[in-house]
């Protein structure tokens, strides 16, 4: 089935993404887009040096990025940080996402991946960001990749499953499309571009291909799958370009945190500074938004 999907012409796809990037979003539209983008952020820290203290600080920021500002969609951490985050987010409505399945490489036995997943869910994560086995995918073992996703989905229980394709390692857009369909067919609630741990993370054309995939999947099955570009999106301008792409590719129905997320850390502060500029009429600076 995967090789029966229509091909992707790289140049054409990149031109389409670039053209959408020229949309000019100003004034009221910009204000709405920035608030929406804030509500779509999966505020992320995935460092070996993460500590409960660091995670608590991040959660505080997630709950209330600044005065009169809506909370972000979720906080995204390693499984070991889930208990601290769960504690810090309790009652906030902010979702708690945990990466799992031997993130970021995915190179571990399935049992380890499932245990990783179950532990994260048990500790309070209501969203799981799993990685696919790129090695198996590139070797043509689509069945294996599929089965793993099915198994992880089962291990998730009620938690939502985001499937990270790690598009930077898939080689071409045809594979991005195939991996998207494979993940959706195996039960993904979201498809996500990247771990943020390889040089090539989310790009507009990769996200375009994935948005086309969820659009076509909906047309076939009636089920809407979410999309999460992650890594490399740092400015409000970039974020707005993604929202334009969502709007004109998957459609306005996807313009909700339930169906579109940004995996990001520094993006939030730029959104806050732009938000301040729109409200006050002058530019803000890094000391006027909080660290974390």
């Amino acid at each position: 089935m995967l090789h029966g999907l229509p091909g992707v012409d790289r140049v054409g796809a990149e031109q389409r993404a670039a053209m959408l990037g020229t949309r000019s979003i100003k004034t009221t539209a910009k204000a709405e887009a920035i608030d929406l983008a804030i509500r779509m952020v999966d505020l992320t820290t995935l460092e070996g040096a993460d500590t409960p203290g660091k995670v608590r600080a991040l959660c505080a920021k997630a709950r209330r990025p600044e005065a009169d500002c809506p909370p972000v969609a979720a906080v995204c951490v390693y499984p070991a940080m889930v208990p601290a985050a769960a504690e810090a987010l309790r009652g906030s409505g902010v979702h708690l996402a945990s990466v799992a399945t031997a993130f970021p490489s995915g190179q571990a036995p399935l049992e380890v991946k499932l245990a990783d997943t179950r532990a994260a869910v048990a500790a309070g994560a209501d969203e799981i960001d799993m990685v696919i086995s790129r090695g198996a995918f590139l070797a043509g073992r689509y069945d294996l990749v599929h089965d793993e996703i099915v198994a992880v989905k089962e291990a998730c229980g009620d938690a939502h499953l985001k499937v990270i394709l790690e598009t930077g390692e898939l080689g071409d857009y045809d594979n991005v499309r195939r991996a998207s369909w494979l993940a959706m067919d195996a039960g993904a609630d979201f498809i996500k571009t990247s771990t943020g741990k390889v040089p090539s993370a989310a790009t507009p054309p990769v996200t375009l291909i994935m948005l086309e995939a969820v659009r076509d999947w909906f047309a076939q099955t009636g089920r809407r799958i979410g999309v999460k570009p992650a890594g490399g999106i740092r400015t409000s301008k970039d974020a707005i370009k993604y929202l334009v792409m969502v709007n004109e590719t998957a459609g306005p129905e996807w313009l909700t945190p339930d169906l579109f997320r940004f995996g990001a850390s520094t993006l939030l502060n730029d959104l806050l500074m732009q938000r301040a500029k729109l409200r006050t009429g002058h530019y803000s600076g890094p000391d006027y938004v909080t660290l974390d």
Partner: peptide, 11 residues
């Protein structure tokens, strides 16, 4: 029938 449909539609 084997066209890259999304790019074809753009074209």
């Amino acid at each position: 029938d084997d066209a890259p449909i999304d790019q074809a539609v753009e074209g």
